[in-house]
Amino acid sequence: MAAHQTNLMTIHQDDIAKLCRLAQIALDDGERAATNADLDKMIQMIDVLQSIDTDGVEPLAHPLDAAQRLRADEITELVDRDRYQASAPAVQDGLYLVPRVL
């Protein structure tokens, strides 16, 4: 049974590089080593969790045992654009400006 298996997965530098790329963060060598150690601990924790017998236990979608409340389809937000844009580094013609992405 998968639930009783231990993965004993370890994180490699390749994985760190991929995660950095996906998360769009840059880590120096020292940070990489520290992150590697942290992630290894997390994986070990997950391995412990994996060893628990969960047969017959319903998957949990959310720690709070409640259903989503729904709201009526009404326009309740009047947008004060100038106020929201005051904290943006660059704004022009009502648009937020970011470094060119294409």
């Binding site: 660059a90 022009q92 013609d93 009502g94 648009l95 937020y96 400006l97 970011v98 470094p99 060119r100 992405v101 294409l102």
Partner: peptide, 15 residues
């Protein structure tokens, strides 16, 4: 929406 043509070296964002 991203508007790439309007500003030199910048992309305009309309949310």
């Amino acid at each position: 929406k991203s508007l790439h043509e309007k500003f030199a070296g910048k992309t305009g964002i309309d949310l």
